[in-house]
Amino acid sequence: MMDHVPLSGGAPKGPADRLCEELQSLKSSSGLTYARISERTHYAKSSWERWVNGKQFPPRDAVERIAAVCQADERRLLELWTLAEACRTPAAVLGAAPGAAPGAAGCGAAPGEGDAASPDRRQAVRLLLTVLALALTAGLARSVALRRELRRDTLPGGGV
């Protein structure tokens, strides 16, 4: 797991920082202890302490469960989680500007503001890569078929 490193001064907060703040806010406003959250979500209280304090990144399921327990906006929390997860993984590099640090694509922006790290952008990149792979596969298959056809036509007794 990647450790949380709080951003300093007036620098914009990354999605992992904002997710951490949301989890802290949920815990505070719910009035629940880590032990109670643990009982209701079936995750260890020590895990909740690490996630809420930003020492470790929480799994998606834990974020879903705390949203349910605290009657919070699950969609908003999962948007933050998805954006933060994209910033943690090498896949986020796909939309990064040239020279940008790995995982930096849109990672300082609010959900929906970071085109490169947005779910729509990632889905479009995946679709493009899939279409490209299919086109290359079809071209290769056509090339192999043509080569076989040429070989058959040039062999003795092959027809021409």
Rank of each mutant, 00 (worst) to 15 (best):
M1L: 07
M1A: 03
M2C: 12
M2I: 15
D3R: 02
H4V: 03
V5D: 10
S8R: 01
G14A: 11
G14V: 01
A16M: 08
L23W: 00
Q24S: 09
L26E: 11
S28M: 09
S29Q: 15
S30F: 13
G31S: 10
L32E: 00
T33L: 13
Y34I: 06
A35C: 08
I37S: 02
R40I: 01
H42T: 11
A44D: 14
K45Q: 12
K45I: 00
S46W: 02
S47E: 13
E49F: 11
W51N: 06
W51L: 13
V52H: 03
V52L: 07
N53C: 14
Q56K: 03
Q56N: 12
Q56Y: 04
P58S: 00
P58E: 07
P59C: 04
R60T: 04
D61R: 07
D61Y: 11
E64I: 03
R65L: 09
I66V: 15
A67I: 05
C70K: 07
A72Y: 00
A72K: 03
D73A: 04
E74A: 05
E74D: 11
E74K: 10
L83A: 13
A84F: 08
E85F: 15
R88T: 07
A91D: 02
A91C: 04
A92G: 13
V93Q: 06
A97H: 15
G99M: 01
A105W: 15
A105D: 11
A105T: 02
G106E: 06
G106T: 14
G108T: 02
G108I: 03
A109E: 10
G112P: 01
G112W: 10
G112Y: 05
E113G: 07
G114Y: 00
A116K: 05
A117K: 05
S118T: 03
S118E: 12
P119H: 03
P119D: 09
R121L: 07
R121F: 12
R122V: 04
R122E: 04
A124R: 08
A124I: 14
V125T: 09
V125Q: 05
V125R: 15
L127R: 10
T130D: 06
T130H: 06
T130S: 04
V131D: 08
V131Q: 12
L132G: 11
L136Y: 15
L136H: 12
L136V: 12
T137Y: 13
G139Q: 06
V144E: 11
V144Y: 14
R147M: 09
R148D: 00
R148A: 06
R148S: 00
E149C: 01
E149R: 11
R151S: 07
R151G: 01
R152V: 04
R152G: 04
R152I: 00
D153H: 15
L155A: 14
L155F: 07
G157S: 01
G158F: 05
